[in-house]
């Protein structure tokens, strides 16, 4: 009997080892999140949520991230389609460039943006002349989020377009569809799952951005910065409820959108 169990285990050494290692990393993600969720009382969370500063920073975070995603859709999806359909010299360079915002420290990314969109620089001045400022203002939050999160959308959309058989587009053309009609009636509908998934990732990444936004715009204050300033100025007890609310919102949104996308994929 014991021999049998031993043999059963011995035959599955690899699976068991990998399962154990995997469990460690899962717990590493799971435990801090749940501990935070349950360490504030519901009444304290509710009180915190009613604070004007908290509500407005959460609202600010959600809608600036959404606007950044909208800009990403308009400017990023065409690039994704172009990259999926064309091969050219330097394509690898372009693809690497898109990934750069993911790998540079985000405070450095913020400084880089400041160097272009600050009022002392040409582009910043040009925008200033039409009434748009990027320092200490909402547009600054949006470009900071856009910069660090748009790679997720572009890469996901590109993969989506690559999976669309090019011959579907060719057939559409022989049936009388123009290149524009072909894109909107064939390519885009078939890649929309990937584009939607990429948008969710981009939005979530925008919501969680801290470093680049801090450099460009510490006020108005987005929620991640609010958590940090409260921690610095008043200590853990004041920062905790805000952090908890932020985690709950992100989890609800993320799980909701994931299951929505999953259901659509199955349908």
């Amino acid at each position: 009997m014991i021999g049998q169990i031993w043999r059963w285990l011995a035959q599955r050494r690899l699976t068991i080892t990998f399962l154990l290692l995997g469990t460690i990393i899962l717990l590493f993600i799971f435990v801090p999140l749940t501990k935070t969720l349950f360490s504030s009382s519901p009444s304290l969370l509710w009180e915190t949520l009613l604070e004007g500063e908290v509500i407005s920073s959460i609202w600010l975070t959600l809608y600036t991230a959404l606007l950044a995603t909208a800009v990403g859709l308009v400017l990023g999806v065409p690039l994704a389609y172009f990259l999926a359909r064309h091969n050219f010299r330097g394509k690898r360079f372009v693809e690497a460039l898109i990934d750069v915002p993911i790998v540079v420290p985000h405070t450095a990314a913020g400084i880089a943006l400041l160097f272009v969109f600050g009022q002392n620089f040409a582009i910043g001045r040009a925008f200033h002349s039409i009434g748009i400022d990027f320092v200490l203002s909402v547009p600054g939050i949006i470009i900071a989020m856009l910069f660090v999160s748009v790679p997720f959308l572009i890469n996901s959309a590109k993969q989506g377009f690559e999976k669309v058989d090019e011959r579907l587009e060719k057939v559409a053309r022989t049936l009388g569809a123009s290149p524009w009609q072909t894109f909107f009636r064939v390519s885009l509908p078939l890649a929309k799952g990937s584009i939607f998934g990429g948008s969710v990732m981009m939005w979530a990444r925008g919501i969680s951005e801290f470093g680049a936004v801090l450099v460009l715009c510490s006020y108005p204050t987005i929620a991640p910065i609010l958590v940090y300033t409260r921690l610095e100025e008043y200590g853990l007890n004041y920062a905790l409820p805000v952090a908890t609310i932020l985690i709950i919102i992100c989890l609800v949104v993320f799980v909701g959108l994931r299951s929505f996308a999953y259901r659509r994929e199955k349908a």
Binding site: R167, V171, R173, T174, L175, G176
Partner: peptide, 12 residues
């Protein structure tokens, strides 16, 4: 002419 203006059908 572009493919959509030729009037040539295609079956893959």
């Amino acid at each position: 002419l572009e493919p959509e203006k030729r009037g040539i059908g295609f079956v893959y």
